[in-house]
Every structure is written in C-alpha cells, then in structure tokens.
Amino acid sequence: MDIDPFELERFFARFEHDADIMLAESGIRSLDSSRFDSDPGEMGYVIPTNGDPELRETIGDDHGRDADEVLCTVGCQEANFLAFAATMGDHAVVVTPTYQSLYAVPEAFGEVTKVELEPPEWDLDVDAVADAIRDDTALVVLNNPNNPTGRYLSEETVRAVYDLAADNGSYLLCDEVYRLLAEDPLPPVSSLGEYGISTSSVTKSFGLAGCRFGWLAGPREVVEAAWNWKDYTTISPTKHGQHIATQALAQREEILAENRALADDHREKTRAFVERHGLDWYEPTGVNGFITVPDGFHSGISFCERVVEEESVVLAPGNAFGQPDYFRLGFGLPTEELEEGLGRLDAFLERHA
C-alpha cells in the first residue's frame, strides 16, 4: 500500500507557521471554548468506542439512519479513511477537483477513475459518471458542497448520481462537511437509500476544528466494517471532542445561523475583491472561493508563493487540486483578519498590475 504526498498540506507546512495571515483556511472561524462546558470529566476512552449512543441517535436523526448506522470518528478525515477501507474494492469513481484524500486514499487501495467538474460553473455531467462506472466499481465519491470550487450540486444531480451507483450495486459516498453552511441544505446522501454514505464533522460548518470530531452515517454493513477498521486506527473518538460536539449539536440552530451570516458577509467582501481586480470565480456555497490566477503569473503555485513571500499571506494553490490556473481563498476567518488579508492582496496586485 502506497500513497502520494498530500500536496496542499505540504505547501502549508512550508509557510503556515511563519505567515501573518492564513487566507487559505477552508472552514468558518473557530468558536471559543468558553462558549461550552469544556470539562468532560474522567479522561478515559469513549465507551462504547463507536460513540455515545444518544449522540449517535442525534446524528442519525439528521441523516436518515438509526444510531447503529452511525460511527463517531476523529474528524471527517478519519470517517472518509474508514469508509474507503470498509468499501473499496478494485475500482472507484471520484468527482474532481476535490480534497486530495478523497481520491488519494482509494487510489492506495485500488484503481480510481476521475470525473471532472466543468469550469467555469463547475457543473457535473451525470452521463460522464455513468460512463466511468464499471462492473467492478465499489463506490462513487462526491464532495458536496465542493472543496475547492464551492459548487453545490443540485438535489436532482445528486439523486441521479445515487441512482447510477445503486443500480450498479455501488455505494455513493458524499463528504458533506460544508452542507450545513448552505441556507437550504440538501438531504444527506445517507438518507437517499441503502447505498448512501455521508461523512461530516463539526469542523467546517460549526467552527470547531480543534474538537477533531466527525462521523460516518450509512448502511449497517459499512458502519460495522468501518468500526472494525477503527479498532486499528484511533479506537475511539476523543472524550473532549465528543463532549464539545454534543453541546454544539444541541446549539445547532444558533451556531449555524451565526456562521451562515458571517459567511454571507465575508462572501460579499470577497466578491468585491474579485471584481476589483477583474478576476473570475463561481460564487460559492460555504467559505471557499476558487479564483482565477491573475495575469502575469505562470500558475497558482507561483502566484501563491509570491504572495506569501511579499505579503505574509497564505493562499492555497490550485495546483494542489489539479487546477493550476486557480487559487483557493478561504474567507471564513475572523472579519478583521479577512479584511487585512484582502487589503494585502490589493496592495500586491496593484504593485504587479
């Protein structure tokens, strides 16, 4: 088993620690721990190790699944890894561009066929998915809303992809970490039928990355197989993360209303920046803008390197997503930091106009 280096994480490792502003963060600004009771009591394992039954029931209610069809994990990254380990056979179909682990991990287990979203609208050709599915396809993989483009595929499109997968006896896995930042979230893929799997966490929509708490919801046989793999990874979710996540889900409506309002305000500020400099983007759902590289720069990585060297602002190069003509700008950070970061980008682009 071999896996490629995670290009985006390696890029961040070069610059993130010393830079002034992280304008590539892909989630909403972090909530302060003072908002919650942060004392979980005795710091033992979570028992049972698949997560608190009442919390799994709460998550299951939102995902069209029973408590026993939910597995609590250490972030969505682990949920995705366990889902791939549990379901991956010879072949998977992955819709790209997307977060690298969503194709790199299944490639470590078998063969992957990529189906590209089509710029500039980043729409999905369902017929292309149909053409990519083979008799030995174990699963189809979506990220909706999409990272990095911010495209939120319609319910009609997602259901069409689900039907293709189900008709082939393949699972549809959807990473839905940004779903709850949408004003009108689609039904989770796990609720569409026996072949639907949803993964998510409290990281992106709730602003609780430090909790490292996520989940997988789907068919019982997948959840049980993933739990078997989890015995060899983290064993249980974190006690502290589960304690905070339980409270956050109880405050769901209040927290999500605040975060959606922040995302809307910051989207407008970022739109103004894009328009000031004659750049292009597909206006996103969530807090990631995928923006065309300005004229005069060879690629996203050369542009992002110059920006961090001259302005101490970290952006995410589109090269890490297989799209060298773009860069990702995360506008979910605190307002003061976003405004400072956009101001530095303004100064940079004015110098290089």
Rank of each mutant, 00 (worst) to 15 (best):
R151Y: 01
D52V: 00
E336Q: 15
E268W: 00
V46T: 03
V314W: 02
R151A: 15
R151K: 14
M88A: 14
Q242Y: 00
H266N: 14
F81W: 06
T199S: 11
N80Y: 09
L124N: 02
G330S: 10
H17R: 15
V177R: 11
H266T: 11
V287G: 06
P317F: 07
A83E: 03
G60K: 01
F15W: 15
A225I: 07
H352S: 05
H243I: 01
D68S: 12
L338I: 14
P324E: 06
P5E: 10
H277E: 09
S299F: 08
P188W: 01
E268M: 08
E78H: 12
E25H: 11
E224P: 07
F206I: 02
F303C: 13
F331A: 04
S170G: 03
W215S: 08
G196A: 00
G27P: 02
L82A: 07
H240R: 07
P145R: 05
R276L: 02
L23N: 10
D32P: 15
E350S: 11
V313K: 09
L31Q: 14
H17I: 09
A245F: 00
C72N: 01
L181V: 10
I291V: 14
D295V: 03
A86Y: 03
A182T: 01
F213M: 08
G218C: 04
D325K: 05
G51Q: 10
F213T: 03
A128S: 13
S26G: 13
N147R: 06
T233W: 07
Y195N: 03
N143M: 07
Y99E: 12
V223C: 07
P219K: 11
I59E: 06
R134K: 14
E183Y: 00
L180C: 05
V177S: 12
F348L: 05
R306P: 10
F348M: 04
R351F: 00
K114P: 03
E305A: 15
R179T: 07
G278A: 06
F109Y: 15
P185Y: 00
R10M: 10
E176D: 03
G27L: 09
F11Y: 15
V307A: 12
L117T: 04
G330T: 06
E258R: 09
G241C: 07
I301M: 15
D265S: 15
E57M: 02
A217K: 05
E309T: 12
E156Y: 04
W281R: 10
E54S: 03
L329Y: 04
E78S: 08
L82T: 04
I47C: 01
A108V: 03
R328C: 14
A353E: 02
V293W: 12
E340P: 01
L338Q: 09
Y152V: 02
I3V: 15
L8G: 06
P120M: 06
I235W: 09
A13E: 14
P106Y: 04
F81R: 15
W215P: 01
